[in-house]
């Protein structure tokens, strides 16, 4: 059974159709890369999965149970959305770290708030886990730095640790290196690669073709709000069948 099953998702903003009949599934421990030009709907799709946008049609299931169905209002209760969001983690293009908290506090804040509500872990345990996550990101010595004291690459790694702290079933990345200087993308991609090696379930929207091919088990090419082609990386990226995919990849090869 796939851990995530997305079926027939539709989304429009006013008269503009941004997602049309999006369906795909993802197995536990696998990674999907979503590629496509700007405005193709990749980011909107991620935002739909994280309940930052509400799809106009279709359904989303996690571990076999439906968490969203556009035709069933009972799956859209405001009170349950918060809980459902925790199936997913999201790493933003612009990091969106909380500026008034240290790196460690950014990682532990949400987990502490949850523990306060539900009991369970102590503050000390959460902090210990937070430090481990930062160490895993290669930031053990930056725990007490504030975001503005960190480089872009370091900030994005803190953001990844922050998302991992809540143990999401599926971790989503929205162009995680687009806001970084070229020399800083490597450190972030390296971290994501190691997460893939540890069989973290991930959906990565990216413009880094080489990275998408290396890290992903499956690649989805989107254009104009529809999935044009999906399959294994060497098939979609090295031997695309669709004309639109070929054109897109050709533009990348030139650049």
């Amino acid at each position: 059974m796939p851990i995530l099953e997305v079926q027939h998702i539709e989304k429009h903003f006013g008269a503009t159709q941004v997602l049309t009949d999006i369906s795909f599934s993802l197995e536990q421990g696998q990674t999907i890369s979503i590629i496509g030009s700007s405005g193709s709907g990749k980011t909107t799709l991620l935002r739909c999965l994280n309940f930052l946008e509400k799809p106009d049609g279709g359904s989303i299931s996690v571990n076999g149970s439906i968490i969203f169905d556009a035709s069933d209002p009972k799956t859209q209760l405001e009170s349950e959305i918060r809980q459902k969001r925790l199936h997913f983690g999201l790493v933003f293009q612009n990091f969106n770290l909380f500026p008034q908290y240290t790196a460690l506090q950014n990682v532990t804040l949400a987990r502490e708030l949850l523990a306060k509500e539900r009991g369970g872990e102590t503050k000390v345990q959460i902090e210990e886990a937070g430090r481990e996550l930062l160490a895993q990101m290669g930031l053990a010595d930056r725990a007490s730095h504030y975001p503005h004291q960190l480089s872009g690459g370091q900030q994005q790694r803190v953001a990844i640790a922050r998302a991992l702290a809540l143990h999401p079933d599926i971790l989503c990345f929205d162009e995680p290196t687009s806001a970084l200087d070229p020399e800083l993308t490597g450190e972030v991609l390296k971290v994501i690669r190691s997460l893939a090696e540890q069989k973290t379930t991930m959906i990565i929207v990216t413009h880094e073709m080489a990275f998408a091919r290396d890290v992903a088990d499956q690649v989805i090419f989107m254009d104009g709000g529809v999935i044009v082609e999906q399959g294994e990386p060497h098939q979609v990226i090295d031997h695309p069948r669709e004309e639109r995919t070929k054109q897109f990849l050709a533009r990348y090869a030139e650049a």
Binding site: L52, L90, N94, A110
Partner: peptide, 22 residues
């Protein structure tokens, strides 16, 4: 920035928590 609210939301915070903590 909107991103601050959204970061709070995807971390499972309530509106109240986002307002007071973020």
């Amino acid at each position: 920035p909107r991103g601050q609210y959204e970061a709070g939301q995807v971390l499972g915070m309530t509106k109240r928590q986002i307002f007071f903590k973020v």
